[in-house]
Design a binder for these strands. Structure first.
Lengths: 164, 164
DNA sequence: TATTGTTATACTCTATAACTATA
DNA sequence: TATAGTTATAGAGTATAACAATA
């Protein structure tokens, strides 16, 4: 809409999404970290637990790939979760090099708690109705799916991060 | 859609936006940095130039606020831009403590170049049509506007970052 | 005394290199 | 030899504290 006929063949230059995404992600993340801190949690702990709950047991490196993070950082992430009893590592009997990671009941409870927090936070922060939220979610999922298969795609399933 | 009747009174729990925004912003940013590197630019240089072009002269601290960044980091950001001749600092005659920042013609050219890059990148990365992009952009702008006035709003105009 | 910009510094996040153990 | 996990470490990015100049 209101395209300034001329370069609209490609894309309205003002409709660049990157900076907007960047700003919103930053803003939301900052707030979330504040609210999660009392629980000893950070955003990435929550995301990791989400993957584990939605997809069950996963190899440690698979989990790292799904989160789009470096394998070295996956180590300390799991150390955090394990020390709080939210997740567990087990050696795979088939291949004793591999670690199989699972979420614990305590992890499920903690995750539900966090989901309530972020859900309320988003409702407070973004003044959009249910329909708009659903539409936005749909578009973002679509983008994420195509980005996952885009240039130098990091792996098959970074988008496994988000259910739905 | 496909809401699992129960807690839908508040928000479908699966429709949490944060992790999605975070993922997309990260992904896009990573690609952009790669493509901008040959120009000696980073994402935040581009964003700063955008603000300067769209709103003209601004105080240094105002610029920092608009970008949602710490004043200390604004210093080095402007050092970068100034050393490349893309922006200029001038002391304000009214209040000699303040620095007034402007974009230079070279800065405008550089910015246009960057916009072409990010525009093409997004088209490559996100498999969405013009209509979807416009819709997504609209929703994101709406969210950004409300986030700016949300809890502990950092300042009036972080959203000045994006024209349109 | 308060504010703008600056420097120096510390802290967090992320990535690289090298090591262990398994295969 | 190659792979999964780990450790140690270096590099960004960001935030805190103290200072100079000006109001």
């Amino acid at each position: 809409m209101e395209d300034q006929a001329g370069d609209s063949a490609v894309q309205a230059p003002g409709e660049v999404l990157g900076p907007l995404l960047d700003y919103l992600a930053r803003r939301l993340r900052a707030e979330l970290e504040t609210e999660l801190a009392p629980l000893g949690m950070k955003a990435r702990h929550m995301i990791a637990l989400t993957v584990l709950r939605e997809f069950g047991e996963r190899g440690q490196s698979d989990l790292g790939k799904a989160l789009g993070m470096d394998p070295t950082n996956t180590v300390s992430l799991l150390n955090d979760l394990e020390s709080q009893g939210l997740a567990e590592r087990h050696r795979s009997p088939q291949d004793r090099r591999r670690h199989t990671v699972t979420i614990t009941p305590a992890g499920c409870r903690r995750l539900a708690e966090c989901e309530g927090i972020i859900s309320r936070l988003e409702q407070r922060m973004f003044d959009i109705d249910a329909q708009q939220r659903t539409e936005l979610h749909k578009l973002l999922v679509h983008c994420a799916a195509s980005a996952a298969g885009g240039p130098e795609s990091p792996a098959a399933g970074p988008m496994a991060v988000l259910p739905n």
